[in-house]
Design a protein around this nucleic acid. Sequence first.
DNA 1: TCACTTATGGCGATGGTCAAGCAAAAGTTC
DNA 2: GAACTTTTGCTTGACCATCGCCATAAGTGA
Lengths: 395, 395
Amino acid sequence: MTERMREPSGQTVGAGALLTILRHGQARTRAELVQLTGLARSTVSQRLDALLDQRWIVPAEEAISSGGRPAIAFAFNRNARLVLAADLGATHARLAVTDLASTVLVERAFDLAIDRGPEETLGWLVATFREMLAEIGHSVAEVCGVGLGLPGPVEHASGRPVNPPIMPGWDAFPVPDWLGARLGAPVLVDNDVNIMALGEHWAVRPETDHLIFVKVGTGIGCGIITERHLHRGAQGAAGDIGHIRVTSADDVVCRCGNVGCLEAVAGGAAMAVRLRQAGETAENSRDVVRLVRAGNTQAVQLIRQAGREIGDVLASIVNFFNPGVIVIGGDVAEAGEHILAGVREVIYSRSLPLATQHLGIRASVLGDRAGVVGAAVMVIEHVLAPEAVDLSVAG
Amino acid sequence: MTERMREPSGQTVGAGALLTILRHGQARTRAELVQLTGLARSTVSQRLDALLDQRWIVPAEEAISSGGRPAIAFAFNRNARLVLAADLGATHARLAVTDLASTVLVERAFDLAIDRGPEETLGWLVATFREMLAEIGHSVAEVCGVGLGLPGPVEHASGRPVNPPIMPGWDAFPVPDWLGARLGAPVLVDNDVNIMALGEHWAVRPETDHLIFVKVGTGIGCGIITERHLHRGAQGAAGDIGHIRVTSADDVVCRCGNVGCLEAVAGGAAMAVRLRQAGETAENSRDVVRLVRAGNTQAVQLIRQAGREIGDVLASIVNFFNPGVIVIGGDVAEAGEHILAGVREVIYSRSLPLATQHLGIRASVLGDRAGVVGAAVMVIEHVLAPEAVDLSVAG
DNA sequence: TCACTTATGGCGATGGTCAAGCAAAAGTTC
DNA sequence: GAACTTTTGCTTGACCATCGCCATAAGTGA
């Protein structure tokens, strides 16, 4: 049973809170921390000793000496632990080992058939992670957590997929238990779009509390961040904008059975179909991007129109949700400015001035690495949460 | 400087947390609280003494005695303080004095011209509140907070209106300072739609964490609650769904200058205009409701169609946000099932099954009292927040 | 009425934090 | 190299919230 000081505000200040200050700011001396927290010097020293014991922090370079003994600055130790992160798609996978600042240390991309089921897929995942750890000369013992993104709905609290349409055999599979037993670390699982949103939010942070990440790939989905947390909705189904109806496509039938879905006109698969109808060779969304980059007029017109359709849906969402930033990512977004131009065009003409005056609409800065970075961020925020750190230094 | 026990989970357990347990549950004995919190018996007793001193709790009836000395149960004292709540509209106002459980003790409705400016309006408000307090034989000293809803955008943190379109003279007026100086209690201000959402959420709680309240009056707006908190968005402009574009109205010009806005086809003012064009007598949204209730075919058709248009917009929002409950309120919603039927019809046909299977779509249960109840809830949640209670018992 | 059961209040013990002070360390300035 | 400045580590005593324990109060059942 430990006790804690309270700031005048009523906020507890433990070792975890101290670490949070060091993690989000730069290196700090003891005197600065006393100033910031209001704790006694001796208490700060004791907290720092506990954090040093667990290697969460390291002494950094010395501060400016103003004529006396220079103070030692302490900095967050991003190398204290390792994080395993994976972004599994329907046909591709990207794995990474990162440090505690989400910096990727090793990274690999693979072709992967996720429909082979959870045991085979996750078994391969464990083996590959072990290889990657060996490659950089680290052991599994240093891993503090595993983050995983899956291409379907996931109940985040339990980490189990729920009725995933494209992952046969994965329904309700206890991913965290299975992986945790083999890697000896906590495992966090979420939808792939959600972790991409986390990754992009990390990349633009701390600019905004309200971010919407739109993934335009084979289908279309989005991740919603509000007050620095993912919004998952009542059934965990939030962000499914691919099947919102758009005006100009009442005659198009979507794979979901409805007509006029956004995905059916602006999704990568739908665009590939249209290009094939126009005589081009286009199997999937990547081929669409290839054609756009090659300057194919049909493809450019198509993607520009897709941008407008997406912008139409987002214009409504901007009025409703008032985000600070919209990030467009996914395979198709790699076609560059064409799609973004369409989105901007419609949003700025349709949404209210108050909501758009400070709204940023931009392309993903992480590209196809958003998923693994987000998976790492998810783990890091969990492991380095003040309460978790307090427990770790108490044990 | 006070210190606090921590649960194994790392959560602090102070007097405020204890009060929260009593407030949301029923009366509890000391033994039950020991069980629930993990604190020592003596600590629980001390916390309860502090809460008794401040009259936050009262001893309740005795629990079942299982053959020994009967335990005293303690219950939240809803009469410990009073709350002043007001919902100011463009032309109407509703004032209430409530207890700490949001129960209305006195209530009055008035006609009010808010465009007379803040000083005159708020001066009248103070005088009327004093009258109402005298009426039930209580003094201003017992008031622990004032909640106020205004018909325009409000920066909640400062309580100041920001560029309100229909409140001349109110821009940036320091409402909390002005009222606080005269009533001697903290003042919280917010947009009227937001406080109505709070009120309705309170009415259905704890059924859902994610609620959307749609106000259909002269215009159309909505309040968004997620994880038991209002979502205000990056600029505080969230919920402005009245100017989302709907498909079937490309030719209708809205007062905002755009074409095809939801408000321009489904708002009360727009419907009144259409009824006038059809030869009926309809000045405002209340007249529309009157005609609907009278069974006027034109009006019924119009409102049913309005429901479908609103449903069209909400269907997109359901896919995006995945709320647990949608509540339809405001003047026009009092027309009853006609509007709700249209909304349900479209949402259930357009939104995804996963998002709609447990979705409740219902009419406001509080009606025109949603505003004052919500204003009271806003104050109560602020005053009875654990940290605030901890400070009050420490002082 | 008496034994039994259970809740309650008071007391000392425990342990973490704070404030203060001192000596040593590690620089700067002259 | 000496004087000065500032940080740091360590110790001490006081403080206070919490805990565990015990005597007492207040019922029940035979």
